[in-house]
Every structure is written in C-alpha cells, then in structure tokens.
Design a binder for these strands. Structure first.
Lengths: 204, 204, 204, 204
DNA sequence: TATGAATGAGCATTCATTCAT
DNA sequence: CATGAATGAATGCTCATTCAT
C-alpha cells in the first residue's frame, strides 16, 4: 500500500531509489537490481522501499519512466531551434543530443537501454513518442511545403523507433563499422532525401 | 559434460528442448524459462536437459541461435529473387517475409525477440548480419550504378538495425498508428529515395 | 554477507543452528547436515540460516569450532589441578574428563568426532593443541626433573593425537576388548613409564 | 543383484573399479567418487558398475577393504623378522613400513585414510587388528619375559590405534613439529620403556 | 514512519540408480 | 552381459516480500 509521495523528503527518497536502480542496472545488469541492493545503494532499508513502490516491478517502471522523462526534457526545449533548421541539420542535431544523453554519466542510460526491454512489462514510451510527434508537427508547420509530401506519421514512426534503436545499437557496438558521425549524417541524409523525394513527387 | 547429439533420438530431444524454451519465452517471458519448466514442456526430466546442455545459458543460446538460423534460412534463398527487383520492391518484399517469420506460430519469434536481448550474453547475430550484408553486396553488383552513390555500409547498417527494430516494434504495438503495409511501403520509399538521391548527387 | 550476531536474539539463533547441526551430524551423519535439515531442526527458515552463515561450510566450521571450544573450556580450568598430580594421575584424570565430554548428551561429540574429519576443510585444532601444549609446559615447570628427559614435543604430539584417537576409537567400539578404565590406566602407565625411563637414562 | 565375480575377467573389472575409486578419492576427495566418475576411470559403463556392486556404498567398502588387505599383506610376512628384534627396533621398523605403504603411489592411501572415516559406515578394521594382535602374541612368545608384565591387549590396542593415527596425522601435517624419524623413535621408546617398566615392576 | 530479520518458494545443478536396448 | 540415456529427488543458495518492533 504505497502512498504517493506528498512530502519533500518522500520525493527525495523516491528519487534516490530510482537513481540507485539505474546505477545498478547500468553497472551490474538486471541481476544487480534486487530490492536489497537498490535499497542499500539508495541508503534506506528494504522495508522503506516498499513504502513507496508496490513491488520490484514498479521500481523498474519508474526507472524506465525516468529515462523517458529525461529524454523528453532534453528534446522539448530544443524544438524551437530545430524547427528553424533544414531537415538534414535537425536530424543530425537531434541524434547528437540523443547520443549525449545516452552517454552521460558514464553511459548510464545507454547501458540501461539495453536491459530496459526485458525489465519492463510495457513500455511507457508514449511521452517520448508524443514529444517527437510534436516536433514533427511543428516542423512541418514551419516548412509547409513538406505537408504535400509523404506519409508523415509513418516517416516519424520509422525515424523515432528505427533511428533510436540504430543509435543505441551503434553506441553499444564495441566495433562499429563506421563512426557515429557517419551514421548520423547517413540517417540525416536518408530522412532528408526521402522527404525531398516525396516533395518532388507531389509537385509533379 | 553434455554430449553431442549423435543419434536420431537425441537430436529430437535437443530440438524439443529448444522448442520448449522458445514457447515458454514467448508465452511467459524470461522468468518462465527455468530449466524445470523447459524440461517439463519438452516432456523430459530435468536431468536429461543437462545431458544435452552444459547449463541454462547454453539452452538460451541455442534458442536464440535457432531464431537467427531460421531468419538466415528464410533470407538466403530469397536473395536471387530480391536482387532482380527494384530497391523499393526488394525492401518491401523483405519486410513482408520478416513479418511472416516473426508472426509464425502465434507470433512466437516476435514475442521472443522482445526478450532475447536480455537473455543472451552476446548476440550471435553475426550470421544474420552476414546474410544481409551479402544481400546488399549482391544487390549493388546487379545495380552497379548504386555504387557511385551513398555510403553503402552505413545505409545497410541503418536498414538492418533500424528496419528490423521498427518492424518488431510495429508488430508488437497493440495500437499501431498505421498499417504494416503503410510502414513497409514507407520504409521502402525511404531507402529507395535516399539511394536515388545520392545517385543523383554523385552524377553532378 | 551474513551479519555478525549483535543482538541477544541473533546470538541465540546462531547457537540454535550450530546445535541443530551437531545433533544432526551425530544422529544422521554428514548427509543429514543439509542446510534445509539444519534450519528445520533449528526451527528457522533456510533463508535465515544464510543471514548468519556465509554458506554450509561456515556452519560446519562453527560446529567443529564449538566442539573444540568446549574441549578447551573443559581442560583449561583443570590445568592447576593436573599439574600437581603425578603423570599417571594426570593422564588418567584427563582421559576421564575427555570421555565425559565426548559422551555428554548421548555421546553427541563422540559421534560428531567420527565425522568431523570429513566435514571441515581445515581443522581449527590449533586452540586445542595450544591448551594441551600449555598443560604440558606447565606440567614440566612443576616437575622440573622431567625437563632433563625425553623429547617433550614428540611425547606431547603422540599423546595428544594418539591418545585422543584411541579414546574416540575405544568409546566408539561396540565391543571393546577392555574396559575404558583399563585403557586409561594403560595409557597413563605408558606415558608415565616412558617419561620415567628417559629420566633415568638422563641421570646416567 | 550383483553377482560374485566368478570369472577372471569379472575379477579384473572389480579390481579396476576399486582401483579407480581409490585414485579418485585420493586425488579429488569424497566428492570425486561419484559412480559415474569411478566407472569412467575404470573404463566401464556406469551400468556395469552395478553388475558387481550393490550400490555406491559397497564400492566404498571394497575400497577400504583393499587398503586394509594391503596393510595386512605388508605386515604378515614381516612378522618372523620383527619378532627377533628388540621392541624398540620392531616398533620403529613397523612404523617405517607403514609410512612406506601410506606414501606409496603419491600418498594414495594416506590421502584415502583421511577420508575413509567418513566414507564407510563400519570399519572392516578387524583383519588389520588381527594381524597386529598376532604379531604381538608371537612377539611375546619369542620374548617370554614380557608376559609377566603389563596388560598386553591394552598395550596393543593403544599402539595399534594410537600409533596408526599418530602416523597418519603426522604424514598429513603440512608443518609437522618434528621429523617422522623423531616421531617413530619417540613412539618406539615409549612402547619399549613402558614394557620394560612393567617388566621391572613384575620382578619386584 | 522506517526498519531489517525472517521467510519459503523457487532456481540451477548433481548424481545414484534403473532399464530398454 | 554391458551399456549409457533418462530420471527426479535432493542440494546449496537467492531474493521478493512481509511484519513485529
């Protein structure tokens, strides 16, 4: 019967737990994220963990939620900037920012991302999807000619999931066959040229 | 020390174990793939499982191996066909085949794919990567004009990882924002138009 | 990581575990000393056993330690008395006390002694050896004439190991060819006469 | 339902099993003496082991029997020689021979002796006890004056068990506080002087 | 409210023994 | 006769969760 953290202190404890979980997941893998270990690293007793979370699963969800929230918080303020760039520039910029987020704190989120799939029952990816869709919508509002072109939702979908996973995979690859920069430019080119192509097709 | 399955019967048992493991992974997730459960579903005693596999990990590897092998077996004979198509057609066709494989047996492989990341220590993805790289190479040999264009390894990398994951994600999505067909055509268009674009750029 | 028993209750639990282990070793042999069985007899859950002991081995060591400690605790306060006796009396007295300890609680330690060899990796016999060596040294300090005689360490070694095992063997023998009293007197005579002999030899 | 080995070949197989068991017990301890392992080293199938032995326990008994038999076989032919020596010489000689037997084949029997206690339910030590008692009896027949002295069975008992265990302990001791030779001479002196003492006592 | 000792179901793995071949 | 694949009970150990303090 965990309560919503109403007080300052409680909020801090919840934060400490999630933080501890992420650190352990990154450093020791799923097996390291036992409730005991998380509580220990968070500096609280095991029992207290259950004051704030229904069960282990709930902690995992909160951990994943945190990653998503951080990603959203990173992207949102970037939107005004991005919408004024060319597609090529915007995609490239976005990928570099994603990389920066994933490699922050000794690649904590990158390492977590590899395990998150197996740890959470259902992805609460919605907020991330929303902000990226917002970005896409605002982008086309600034570049109205694109609207005539391709199937926007599909393109976004491909970019969001395919792009994200490709970046994660590349950064995790101990021997990547190309530099991150090449990959980013390649993806930027791909997105740009396909949108230009559909634009051209629409003009005919 | 597990023995190599030399006899017919032994081979069948190994198969049954791997099969049981995949069924359980698909239906119950990683936690369902305990040695006891696998043996039970395979219709053998726990001890027998250890006659054929060093340990639990070895079973998991064999399971993943099986998926990869099946994917390779599906793609390989397709290559001669694919290389004669346009990029658009080839990508579309490949995606449809991938879907068919993933959704076979009540989406067994699709469900497994979601967990495989967490289950195997190191992906033996090499064979899959190889066959897809082969496909790309043979494709450009049949379409030499493409060689002048874009950074081929990067494009393949993006398509292989991004494309695969996008498909998996889409098929797993209980409420996908577009049909699989739209997604496949969208991805095919993207690949096609970007290769055409770089071709055009090269001509200048 | 098992905790040091800091509280009263914890100390009692540790004691109960060791006690249970000794009872089981005595009654059912090494095979009876499984962690589950020990926990059961100690009246606790298996998990709790691991709160106090790193692993099964550690329980076994504690069990053996307990026997050694009890033996030492029995001998130590006896030393002042023993050193004032003749060798014959002292050896006889010591053997009777050893017997009493071994046969206490329905011969628990006697039965355990038979198995302890196989159960502990390294004997922590040091404390026992030390107290017996102390006894020997204090004895010769009270009987300085003995110092002129035989090789004291060797004699002690023979008495400590040979004597101890002979007693254990005799008490375990379902059909001993002589009474314990005869054995004790015989050993006492042997030790006494050989020390007297080497004394006589030294005088020449 | 194991049969008595009636044929040559069967006898050889039984021998191979016992031999394998002793090698494994010496080299790998009790845990190494699984039926599988023994059969493997003996060069037969597990099933065949059960043709000759009721169960694992029976193999262990046969192993121990073998050690005892070898000890008896070593001592018996020595008796005529020993009875013509002084007690001191005889004891010393016997101990050296025991040592030689125990350290044969890279200390195989010595290592086994340490585990045999825990492995066999009941010691079939009787034959060894018998041959040593025979030795003692024949000895006093050659030295009739000894008969007047001490309690012969008791002295033998002490020597047999105490002496044997002291030797085993000393040879197993990684840091023995004296040389084997000192120990042997010390024990020889002890036995000699105590028999001489009881002789002297009897003369008064 | 916070704690951490206690729990026991569950897991991976081993191995004596059997029995169909 | 000999075999070794198959078995499943048993073992040591972990860990999510609870609850008395």
């Amino acid at each position: 019967m965990p309560r919503k953290p109403q007080q300052e202190r409680a909020k801090a404890t919840v934060d400490a737990i999630v933080e501890a979980g992420l650190i352990l997941l990154a450093n020791e893998g799923p097996k390291g994220t036992s409730t005991r270990r998380i509580a220990e690293v968070a500096g609280i007793g095991v029992g207290s963990l259950y004051e704030y979370f229904e069960n282990r699963e709930a902690v995992h969800e909160a951990m994943f939620q945190r990653i998503v929230d951080d990603a959203v918080a990173m992207i949102k303020p970037l939107i005004p900037e991005l919408v004024r760039m060319t597609i090529r520039e915007a995609v490239y910029e976005l990928m570099c920012r994603m990389r920066e987020l994933l490699e922050r704190d000794d690649s904590r989120y990158l390492k977590c991302a590899r395990h998150s799939v197996s740890i959470v029952r259902s992805y609460p990816l919605k907020p991330l999807q929303k902000v990226l869709t917002d970005l896409a919508m605002q982008y086309v509002m600034h570049h109205p000619e694109l609207m005539r072109g391709a199937d926007l939702p599909t393109m976004s979908y491909i970019f969001i999931y395919g792009g994200t996973f490709t970046v994660i995979r590349h950064l995790s690859d101990p021997n990547p066959p190309m530099s991150f920069d090449s990959l980013a430019r390649g993806l930027a080119n791909m997105v740009a040229s396909s949108s230009e192509a559909s634009l051209a097709a629409a003009k005919l």
